[in-house]
Amino acid sequence: MMISDEQIMAYVDGELDARARADVEQAVASDPEIARRVARQRALREKLRSAFDDVLNEALPEHLVAAARNAPVASVSERRNVADLAQVRDKKAAPERVARRWSWPEWSAIAASVVLGAIIANLMWRSPSDLAPFSAKDGRLVAGATLAEALTQQLASTQPADALTRIGVSFRSRSGDYCRTFVTRAGGGLAGVACHRVDDWTLEALSRVEAGSAGTGTYSPAGSSLPAAVSQTVEEQIVGEPLDAAAEAAAQRSGWR
């Protein structure tokens, strides 16, 4: 009986129904060549498993257990919500466009000077709520008072270099809202995108940033998905080009509406 490689693999992977399994077993019993092929696939599977088994017995790194215990939870499932925060929208990669957009001095300075940590800052449960840079509201993550004030008042062109929160770029989003990127030292260092809706700044993306290794050229693969989370959010939502200084000032005067 002819037994294909696919059948043998499916057999070894436990994917055959009883009848197909019996066929293979019969072939194994009567044809040493087929028996060898099955044995080879079994051996590969077993070797692979054992090659990676060590990790199961290693002590768990504490920071992973801590992340599972303490990282913030979002329980709402409406569209614009916390659960969307870290989702990188993978539809449009458009790498060249991204590269060009992020050549703005403001952002490239950020990108070059931070090493990005974990996706979300673990400060939500650490700081008293009135001091927290953001809080949950109606299933959204909104900027806290201090961050909101910076987002409302500050202009990228005039803000002090040592401001607690620095605004990056401002732009119109697909939903018609004004959105702004920011970096803040609050909460241990955060970067994100906030969009103005009604009375709040809703956080659309948020990343942890640390100034520690700034400028040393060190590269940490650790949170490198972070700038992507922020940049892809902008990339996804931006309509046209970012606001220039005059348009930014005009938007600020109109209360970001």
Binding site: L64, V73, A74, P221, A222, G223
Partner: peptide, 30 residues
């Protein structure tokens, strides 16, 4: 951690990836 090692090719990236995964999963709890 084991799956992360099979896909990332190195243990450091692997644990970073696990952390990001855990954080995202919690954010998607709902």
């Amino acid at each position: 951690r084991r799956f992360a090692r099979t896909i990332t090719r190195n243990p450091h990236d692997a644990d970073d990836l696990v952390q990001v995964t855990v954080e995202r999963a919690l954010l998607k709890f709902g």
